[in-house]
Design a protein around this nucleic acid. Structure first.
Length: 897
RNA sequence: GGGCGGUUAGCUCAGCUGGUUAGAGCGCCACGUUGACAUCGUGGAGGUCACUGGUUCGAGUCCAGUAUCGCCCACCA
C-alpha cells in the first residue's frame, strides 16, 4: 500500500497513496479549501521577504466566468505560485468590478422581462436590484475562481463599489478637481440614445458601413436661382446646420464667401465662410456645418462663432429644432429628410460611400455626437509623466511592441468624459447648493448642507465612468487613502497581467492615476495576453453561442489540464485557439506524471528512501551513466525553467517541462530503471534515490503550472514537507555535459537497433542476439549493457560488447551509428536484397552528411569567421560520416549479389 | 488614412542571443500487454519555414519590399 506521510494533507486530500489513474475530481476535491484554510494564500509575513504583488483584473460582475478568465487565472496564479515558492511575500489581490454601464444593462434587461423599466422602479429601488444581482453573482465568480485554483488572498477581496474603494474614488475626484484636472464643460460628446448616457471615446467602436454621400443644393439667399451643393453622409443633420464652409483658396466659391444660403426645408439663413480645414477635393468642396452634432463642425463652429443647434432629445428623438420632423427618432429621420429633399428637388446626386460609423461598445446602437454638459478629466498634464515612464522603461511591456501602441494612444489623447447618465456606479461627489448656487466637491459619502451658506444641497445625478474606479485599483484595494501597512508594503505592485484589449481602458489609466496619486507607477511590468478563441478562430460571444464554460471543462479534465492547455498553447500578446483535444492531451500528460510517480513510489518505498522536509538529497555517487545523465538533465531543465520564467516565457517553460517528463524521464530513465531494479541492492538504492530526487524536483518545477496534481503527487512522496506550494523553488546544481553526451550515444544506438528490428520485421516481443563494436566508447556501452539489452530487446546472455571489429556473417543485420556498430544475427529473417537496400539508404544518408560537412569546411569564410566550437562540430560531423561510410561500404562489399 | 500582428507538418502551434539533419501536441500508417500509464509504448510517413530581393562564412530567425488573413487607432464631411 502506498501511503502518504503527511497525515494532515492526506486527510484533506483524501489521498491514500496514488490511485491507478489520475482522476481530477478526486484530486481537486477539498484541496483548495485546505490550502486556503492553512493560510497559504496570504503573503509571507517575514519582513525580509521581497513583496511580489499582482492585482487581479477584477472580473465584471455581469455573468459567469469564461475561458478568458481561466487564462488570466492560469498565468497570474503561475507567477504568484512561482514567486511564493521563491520565498517572496507573494500577494494576489482578488476583486470584482461593478461594470457601470454593462452592469446596469444586465439588470435592466432582467426587469424588462417583468415588463418594467428602471424608471418604474425609481433610482433607489433599481440600484437595490443591481446590488442584489451583484451579491449573488459575486459569490458565483468566487466559486469559479476557487475551482480554477486561483491562490489569491480572499481576505483582501475587494469590490469597486465597497466603501473603501468608493471613498478612494471621491478623494481622487476631489484631488483632481481642486488641481483643475477635472472640469465641467459643455462639449461635443458621444451619446448613446439607447443607454441614454454620454460615452468616452473608448466606448465608441467604429465600424465601416456602406452608406451614401448625398449632394444637396442650398440656394443662395440673395439669388435663389443659384445654389451651392454640399455633400454629407448624414443628411438628417442638416436640420442643425448653422453655416456652410469652403476652402479659402477654392476659386469656385471665393465670390460667395460672406454671402448667405437658405437651408432647405427649414429656410434658415446660413453664412458661407472660409476655413483651411475644408478639403476642396472632397465631395463638392463645400461642407455643411452642424456644430452641435459633428466633432469637426463643433471646432469649426467655435472658430467662426456659429450657433450650436441641438436637434436631439436624450432618447434619440428629434426636438423642436427639427421643425416638421420633431418627435421622430433620428434613425428614421434620414429617410424622411431625404424624401422631403427629393420632393423639393434639392438632392443633386447620391453616391455610394463607405465610411466609419460609431457604435455603442455596450449595446451596439449608433452613437450620436451631441453637445452636452459633462465632467471631463484634463488629460495632457496626466499623460506627460505616463509617457515618460513608458519611454524610459520604468514600465516595461511584454511583448514590447505594446509600448508603441500605448505611447501612440497617450500622445494623442483627448480629454476624458467621465460622467455617465446612469444610476449604477459611483455617484459624482459634487453637490449643488439650491440657495446660493455654490458647487461643493465632497469626499464624504453624503453632504447634508452647503458648507458656504448652510442651504439645501443636491448631488449631481450622474455617476462616473466605471474605469475611473478601476484605474485606482492598485491602491484603492490596499486601503488608500489611509496609510495602511498593506499600502506601505505592497504598493507599487509588480506585474500587471491582463488582456491587450483593455490596454487603454484600464492599464493606461492605472499608470497615469498611479503616478498622479502615489507618485510612482503602479507596476513595473505589463504582461499582455491574447484572446482565447474557439476552434474556428472566432472570438467567443454569447450571441454566437460558442462560449466555453471553464467549469464544464474542469469537471471533465480538471483545472490543471485546462490551465496547462491555456498556458502552453499561447504566446504573450497573441490570440490562441482552444480545443477540447488540447485540454485532453494536457490531462493525458498529467496522467503520465501521475503514473510515473506511481512507478517511482514503489521503488522509493521498497528502498525506504529518506527525505528531508524539503525533499530528498541529491544522490552523491550515481552508479550508472543513465543516473548521471538524468541528474544532469534535471538540473539543465531547472536552469532553463528559471531562465524562461524570468523572461516571461511561461508557455515555453511548460512545454519544455512536459517534454522532459514525457520523453526523458518516462521514455528513457524509467524504462531503463525497470531492468536495473532487478539488479543488486546497491543499484536498486541508487535508482530509487534518483527517482525520488527527480520526481520531487519535477513536482516543484511544475507546481505553478499544475497546482492540484503536483500537490496531490507531492503529498504521496515520503517527505515531511507540508505543501509543495510553500516548498522551496528549485535552484540548479551542476550539470554533467559529459554524461549527457555519452548517454546520447547509447540512446542513439538503441533507437537504431529498434529501427532495424522494425524494418526487418522482428516481432516486438522477440529477444535477439547482438554484438556491439564500440571502439573508443566501448567502456560506456559495457557499463550500460543491461539497459541496452532491455531497451533494445537484445538478449543479455547473447549481448557481446567488444572493441574488436565485428565480423558480420551472411545473414546479419548491421546497424551503424556515429559511435558504434551493432551486428544482429537474424538467421532466416533477413532478405539479403532488402538488407542491402537498407544499408544503401544508410550509406546515402551518410554521404549526404559528409557532403554537407565538407561543403561547410571547404568554405574559407566559415573556417575563418565562425566560432571555434561551431567549426569543431562540423569537423566531428565529417569524421563521423566518413567512418560510417567506411563501415557501411565494407559491409556492402560482402554482398556478392 | 496611420500603426501592429500572423503566415513553419493534414490541423493547432513552439522555435527565446542567426550556427549540426526545423520541433511538439493532435491526426495518420505499421507493430505492440516488459515492475507506472491503452489517458500507453515502439518504429514510421509527413515541411520549397507565404513570396522576392538583401546583409552574412551561415537566415525560419536580421533588413527591405510584395501578397494574404487579422487586429488596433483615426473628427475627411
Amino acid at each position: 500500500m502506498l501511503s502518504s506521510n503527511n497525515e494532515e494533507a492526506g486527510r484533506h486530500l483524501g489521498v491514500d497513496g496514488l490511485a491507478p489513474s489520475f482522476d481530477p475530481a478526486e484530486v481537486e476535491q477539498g484541496l483548495y479549501d485546505w490550502w486556503d484554510e492553512s493560510g497559504f494564500f496570504q503573503p509571507n509575513e517575514d519582513p525580509s521577504a521581497k513583496p511580489f504583488v499582482i492585482v487581479m483584473p477584477p472580473p465584471n460582475v455581469t455573468g459567469e466566468l469564461h475561458v478568458g478568465h481561466a487564462l488570466f487565472v492560469a498565468l497570474q496564479d503561475l507567477m504568484i505560485r512561482w514567486h511564493r515558492m521563491k520565498g517572496d511575500a507573494a500577494l494576489w489581490i482578488p476583486g470584482a468590478d461593478h461594470a457601470g454601464i454593462a452592469g446596469q444593462w444586465v439588470v435592466e434587461r432582467q426587469i424588462a422581462e417583468e415588463g418594467l423599466t428602471r424608471h418604474d422602479l425609481g433610482r433607489e429601488a433599481f440600484v437595490e436590484r443591481v446590488w442584489e444581482y451583484m451579491h449573488r453573482l459575486r459569490g458565483r465568480i468566487r466559486e469559479q475562481m476557487r475551482t480554477l485554483g486561483a491562490s489569491c488572498d480572499w481576505t483582501r477581496f475587494a469590490f469597486t463599489m465597497d466603501p473603501g474603494p468608493s471613498h478612494a474614488v471621491r478623494v481622487v475626484f476631489k484631488h483632481l478637481h481642486d488641481k483643475g484636472l477635472i472640469y465641467r464643460g459643455t462639449r461635443l460628446i458621444s451619446w448613446c440614445p439607447r443607454c441614454m448616457t454620454a460615452l468616452s471615446d473608448l466606448e465608441v467602436v467604429h465600424k465601416d458601413v456602406d452608406g451614401h454621400l448625398w449632394h444637396i443644393a442650398y440656394p443662395l439667399t440673395g439669388d435663389p436661382s443659384r445654389s451651392i451643393v454640399v455633400a454629407t453622409t448624414r443628411p438628417e443633420t442638416m436640420l442643425g446646420d448653422s453655416g456652410v464652409a469652403v476652402h479659402p483658396d477654392d476659386a469656385r466659391y471665393v465670390a460667395e464667401v460672406g454671402q448667405t444660403l437658405t437651408l432647405p426645408i427649414l429656410n434658415r439663413e446660413l453664412p458661407i465662410f472660409a476655413d483651411d480645414a475644408v478639403d476642396p477635393a472632397f465631395g463638392s468642396g463645400a461642407v455643411k456645418v452642424t456644430p452641435a452634432h459633428d466633432p469637426n463642425d463643433f471646432e469649426l463652429g467655435k472658430r467662426h462663432h456659429l450657433e450650436q443647434i441641438n436637434i436631439l432629445e436624450r432618447n434619440g428623438t428629434l426636438n423642436q429644432h427639427a421643425g416638421p420632423f420633431a418627435g421622430m427618432h433620428i434613425s428614421a429621420a434620414r429617410e424622411a429628410v431625404v424624401e422631403r429633399l427629393k420632393q423639393d428637388n434639392a438632392i443633386v446626386r447620391i453616391e455610394e460611400h463607405r465610411h466609419a460609423v460609431g457604435h455603442c461598445e455596450r449595446c451596439g446602437s449608433v452613437v450620436e455626437p451631441t453637445i452636452s454638459e459633462q465632467w471631463f478629466v484634463k488629460m495632457q498634464p496626466l499623460a506627460e509623466p505616463a509617457i515618460k515612464v513608458a519611454k524610459d522603461g520604468t514600465v516595461a511591456f511584454v511583448p514590447d511592441r505594446f509600448r508603441g501602441v500605448y505611447l501612440n494612444w497617450m500622445e494623442n489623447i483627448h480629454d476624458w468624459c467621465i460622467s455617465r447618465q446612469l444610476w449604477w456606479g459611483h455617484r459624482i461627489p459634487v453637490w449643488y447648493c439650491q440657495t446660493c448656487g455654490e458647487t461643493t466637491v465632497a469626499v464624504e459619502e453624503t453632504l447634508d448642507e452647503c458648507p458656504g451658506c448652510g442651504g439645501h444641497v443636491m448631488q449631481d445625478p450622474d455617476v462616473l465612468d466605471t474605469w475611473f474606479s478601476s484605474g485606482l485599483w492598485p491602491y484603492s484595494t490596499l486601503g488608500w487613502p489611509e496609510q495602511t501597512d498593506d499600502l506601505q508594503r505592497f504598493y507599487p505592485s509588480d506585474v500587471m497581467e491582463t488582456g491587450y484589449e483593455i490596454l487603454f481602458f484600464w492599464v493606461a489609466r492605472m499608470v497615469f492615476f498611479g503616478i498622479e496619486m502615489m507618485g510612482e507607477p503602479p507596476f513595473h511590468t505589463v504582461y499582455l495576453h491574447g484572446t482565447v478563441r474557439d476552434t474556428e478562430g472566432l472570438k467567443m460571444s454569447k450571441t454566437k453561442g460558442n462560449v466555453l464554460d471553464p467549469t464544464e471543462i474542469t469537471a471533465t479534465f480538471g483545472s490543471d489540464a485546462l490551465r496547462f492547455a491555456l498556458v502552453t498553447q499561447g504566446s504573450p500578446g497573441l490570440d490562441m485557439r482552444l480545443s477540447m483535444t488540447l485540454v485532453e492531451s494536457s490531462r493525458n500528460f498529467i496522467n503520465k506524471l501521475w503514473n510515473a510517480t506511481r512507478f517511482g513510489l514503489r521503488a522509493i518505498n521498497e528502498c525506504e528512501i529518506a527525505m528531508a522536509e524539503d525533499g530528498p538529497a541529491r544522490p552523491e555517487e550515481p552508479a550508472s551513466l543513465v543516473d548521471r545523465w538524468i541528474l544532469s538533465r534535471i538540473e539543465a531543465v531547472t536552469v532553463d525553467t528559471n531562465r524562461l520564467l524570468d523572461s516571461h516565457l511561461y508557455g515555453e517553460a511548460g512545454r519544455q517541462l512536459r517534454e522532459f517528463v514525457w520523453t526523458e524521464l518516462c521514455d528513457w530513465y524509467i524504462e531503463a530503471a525497470k531492468v536495473r531494479l532487478r539488479g543488486t541492492e546497491t543499484e536498486r538504492q541508487v535508482v530509487a534515490q534518483v527517482l525520488a530526487y527527480v520526481l520531487e524536483r519535477v513536482m516543484r518545477l511544475l507546481h505553478p503550472f499544475l497546482p492540484f496534481a503536483t500537490e496531490a503527487i507531492w503529498q504521496a512522496l515520503p517527505h515531511q514537507g507540508k505543501s509543495v506550494m510553500i516548498s522551496t523553488w528549485p535552484v540548479a546544481q551542476r550539470t554533467d555535459s559529459d554524461a549527457e553526451q555519452r548517454w546520447l550515444r547509447v540512446s542513439e544506438l538503441i533507437v537504431r537497433i529498434r529501427n532495424a528490428r522494425a524494418e526487418v520485421g522482428v516481432e516486438a516481443a522477440r529477444w535477439i542476439p547482438a554484438t556491439i563494436h564500440a571502439g573508443e566508447f566501448h567502456g560506456d556501452f559495457t557499463a550500460v549493457a543491461s539497459e541496452i539489452s532491455a531497451l533494445a530487446r537484445v538478449d543479455s546472455e547473447q549481448l557481446m560488447i567488444s572493441n574488436l571489429a565485428a565480423q558480420p556473417g551472411e545473414s546479419d543485420v548491421v546497424v551503424v551509428t556515429d559511435d558504434a556498430v551493432a551486428v544482429l544475427p537474424l538467421v532466416g529473417l533477413v532478405d539479403l536484397a532488402e538488407e542491402r537496400d537498407r544499408l544503401q539508404k544508410d550509406l546515402e544518408a551518410a554521404e549526404l552528411e559528409r557532403a554537407r560537412a565538407t561543403a561547410q569546411l571547404s568554405n574559407p569564410g566559415f573556417v575563418d569567421k565562425a566560432p571555434r566550437h561551431v567549426v569543431d562540430v562540423q569537423r566531428e560531423r565529417l569524421s563521423a560520416a566518413e567512418e560510417k561510410i567506411a563501415v557501411i561500404s565494407e559491409r556492402l562489399a560482402t554482398f556478392s549479389v
